[in-house]
Design a binder for these strands. Structure first.
Lengths: 344, 344
DNA sequence: CTGAAAGCGCTTACAG
DNA sequence: CTGAAAGCGCTTACAG
């Protein structure tokens, strides 16, 4: 007689069920799944079929405990835009079974304290979004602790063994070229906060495209990435003569500010002036007219970042080969841009 | 001699270290931590001290495996605002060691498929944000599967054993009363999409406050929660005579639309007309003037939701006592509201 | 009030 | 190419 089980299962189908059905040991199932050791072709087939038939799904907690795989990752965030954070999280959490510990201390000291606590509780690796990944003290702490990290859009890719980032330069160049193709010759540019690499790269991309088109760069004014900073800057831009037929703002908040400024001046968008932004933040689709902008593949970057990290942790080498993965942006053409007035 | 360990530890300090230092068994440490069984006061003290001295942090994966605690939760999302989703995630992930599986299928059928897969992989319970929690077929599936869920701001709280929601009615009443206190007697209202309970409750709260103040409800116009829908509606509101001195929009996107309409009409905000919204979405702080609005404690609700769910799962009863937890909103006064013109 | 044993589901050595 | 054993860190029965 079977004594009643001393413990109740937490999962209906385990590796043991699969093994039994395939007529092999649990080991072989594990190996088939991981691909980390040779398995005979016929055996492999039987195992895979059993997995399919039973709809087996491995238990991440058990994997974590047994092998230090299915790692627990930490994500530190500092006051990012909510849209950015949510895309980052959605992208990262796509990884099946990933355990993510979040920390968002306000100051750098608190952040280091949280990191220490996370490491003690078994966090294997960290995902560092912009600005967090540029804190040298934090990086030093991670280095000492022998813990891995991947930087997302860092200021200085060279500081990191693993990083994913976006080609701001190329995207700004493409956007500018698109405006030129629409017949715009005088294109104003609103610079962002030059403390960020992205602001610099976007400006460079714009300048390159203007030079390539044989055009004089339109007036450049300085914003601080905020709606408010942009309104005044945009009014200066709109008052300059000859007037710009297009304005390229370094982010969407500033593009929205330019839109407001244009409305105050009684200008139609895009009839009198085209306005474009960067980031595809929620405000871009919300405004009326909806703003043409550049979309970063944030979720894809987060997914790739998690993937890189998982591989690095699995490899278990002290110094993995550095990987710097660059992602391309996409133009999102909406209503705020159109042919230059002279072309209509 | 000590043979080299056959396996490397994945954690520096485990429950065994704590037990040894406190001179007790691992069991006693576990009991001290869980509070699920009596432990002598003196023993308890020693254990707690050892935990502090060694900075012990329990391993969530081991807990999950051993007890079915530290549960794995699923979060289904459907196209929410990114700000809402990120706050929800941040709030939920506050729970130490929580494993969260995300799914965001576009259609209801895909969603049910994802839910089935998650259940098979050991997800214990689900967090259902608005609109997902109002899908009867999905609820039926969860019910059949014997799985728990908590609804966040459902249309019909009565459909759920566990839910957290916000007091939209009360918040709208408070906001309206605040405008009245600022001297506004003619307050226009932009209704949202009445398919949502929130839209209805906000309107009712507004009407209640006007009645309480002995004021005739100002013109009510209909929007669809979008910026665009609001611009035309607001222009009608602003053209009505006697003119409103304040406009209360049922969400921030519509308040931003009202702001744009006021600017087009050459009206100053809040000099000529006050404009307020609801939600404290990113656009509210971005616009200039920054929009006065109502802030929902989304992260706190998510935290509470996870807590409720964890308790329900732990209790392991088929039918836990229903808990409907209501949260209060906070007024966020920014620049877009001020005293009525007549009061200045 | 406290503990020795068994087990959660998986993977890593170690053998064949 | 395959498997029996041990173990990851914790908790749940079962005894005292």
């Amino acid at each position: 007689m079977t004594g009643r089980p001393r413990r109740r299962a937490i999962q209906e189908v385990t590796i043991a069920h699969v093994a039994k059905r395939a007529g092999v040991s649990g080991m072989t199932v594990s190996r088939t799944l991981s691909g980390r050791a040779p398995v005979g072709a016929a055996t492999r087939e039987r195992v895979l079929r059993a997995i399919r038939e039973l709809r087996y799904q491995p238990n991440p907690a058990a994997r974590h405990l047994a092998g230090g795989r299915a790692p627990r990752f930490g994500l530190l965030y500092v006051n990012p835009s909510p849209a950015y954070l949510s895309e980052l999280l959605v992208g990262a959490l796509t990884q099946e079974g990933l355990q993510l510990a979040l920390a968002g201390a306000a100051d750098a000291t608190g952040r280091r304290r949280e990191v220490r606590a996370m490491i003690r509780s078994g966090v294997h690796a960290f995902l560092l979004p912009p600005s967090v990944c540029d804190d040298p003290k934090l990086l030093a702490l991670l280095r000492e602790s022998g813990v891995r990290w991947v930087a997302v859009s860092p200021a200085e890719p060279a500081d990191h063994a693993l990083c994913v980032y976006v080609n701001d330069y190329e995207a700004a160049r493409t956007m500018t070229a698109r405006l030129v193709a629409l017949g715009h010759h005088r294109i104003g540019f609103i610079v962002g906060d030059l403390a960020y690499r992205a602001a610099i790269d976007r400006r460079e991309g714009y300048l390159r495209a203007m030079a390539d088109a044989g055009l004089a760069p339109g007036p450049l004014v300085r914003g601080r990435f905020s709606f408010r900073s942009s309104v005044a800057a945009s009014e200066r831009l709109l008052d300059a003569r000859p007037r710009c037929t297009a304005i390229f703002a370094s982010n969407d908040d500033m593009a929205a500010g330019a839109l407001a400024a244009a409305h105050r001046r009684g200008l139609r968008v895009p009839g009198d002036v085209s306005i474009v932004g960067f980031d595809d933040s929620p405000i871009a689709a919300t405004m009326s007219p909806a703003i043409t902008t550049v979309r970063q593949p944030i979720a894809a970057m987060a997914r790739a970042a998690v993937e890189l990290l998982a591989q690095a942790v699995e490899a278990r080498e002290r110094e993995a080969a550095p990987v710097h993965q660059r992602f391309d942006c996409a133009l999102v053409e909406r209503e705020s841009s159109g042919p230059a007035a002279s072309q209509r």
